[in-house]
Simulated scan of single mutants.
Amino acid sequence: MRNNLPDLFPGFDSLTVEVEDEWLFCRTGGSGPPLLLLHGYPQSHVCWHKIAPRLAEHFTVVAADLPGYGQSSVPPLSDDHAAYSKRSMATALAEMMRILGHERFLLAGHDRGGRVAYRMALDHPGLVQRIAVLDILPTSAYWDRMDRQFGLKIYHWMFLAQPAPFPDKMIAASPIPFLEHTLRSWTAGKDLTCFTSDAMTHNRAWFCDPDRIAATCEDYRAGAHIDDAHDRMSLDLGHQIEVPTLVLWGDKGIANSVESPLDVWRTWSPDAEGLALPSGHFLPEEAPEETFEALYRFFGN
């Protein structure tokens, strides 16, 4: 990973936190109540760069790279995909926050980071004070809706979840075109204009690493197996998210492909609130002003 990448978080510290046998990279800055920001696929903590400085005026912001992504370490792949389960990621990130001195914190996650976020709220309810999930439905809810229309829209769920090393090697043979196609196809405008040149430099730098490509595929393999099982177990046991929950989605995003995302989320968090923003899938970069305002209003309560 290059160490001369553009600094998109001026005034923030860069930290590498060792958690058991892995290390997690994060940028942290600001003051006030701690707020953990988690990114999605195929991105890193950089996806928050348009709004993190403004959030840091009100909160102690921690923008972290998920295991296997960006500049965090790459856990080993396994037959049960356990290291990439959202339960495992949530546990590691919760421990990272404890090491940083944050015993309780606010939490926002986009895409895959949203899956880590809601799993953390379910598994560690005493740690999370409020949670925001951006442009997702729960993992099991997506699988239950995987008909022809929905499958075509999120085809990557099936492709990336194929056994290793098939999708890993296919992507590694041409990583940048795959990355740019994926980013472009999920925006409202079907182009890359919402992503700054410096942010794309970051995205391209880490997505060229075959080990990290394999890690991101393993993330989706976990989603198709162990994560889905964890979701269904939580539903069977009647577990719910017990803290205030904000649901944001793009009016041209992926989550908007089904009936009201808010109605789906209220199965998991009965008092959840939320709204659609003028955006495709990448709310923090396509609609930074609206995303900031929504998060500030919710977390500033």
Rank of each mutant, 00 (worst) to 15 (best):
D228H: 13
G68A: 01
W206P: 10
M1N: 03
N4M: 01
I131V: 15
L248E: 05
E95K: 15
K169F: 02
F25M: 11
L248C: 03
H81W: 04
T60E: 14
L122G: 08
P125W: 12
H39R: 11
L283G: 04
A63N: 11
S78K: 03
L160V: 02
H58L: 11
L160S: 03
W186E: 06
A215W: 05
A276W: 07
R297V: 06
S88D: 06
E57N: 09
V17Y: 07
D191H: 11
A141H: 15
Y41H: 04
A90I: 00
R87A: 15
G114S: 09
E18N: 10
R232H: 01
T216L: 10
N3I: 04
E103C: 03
D80L: 12
E289P: 04
A205F: 00
V258P: 02
Y69F: 15
C47H: 07
W23D: 09
P67W: 07
W157D: 03
A224K: 11
G40A: 01
Y69K: 06
V128Q: 09
S197Y: 04
C194I: 12
H81G: 01
L66Y: 13
L127E: 12
V247Y: 02
W186I: 03
Q149M: 05
V17E: 08
L152A: 14
H230I: 13
V46H: 08
I254D: 08
L179A: 09
A164I: 03
Q240E: 09
G109H: 13
D209A: 10
A108Y: 07
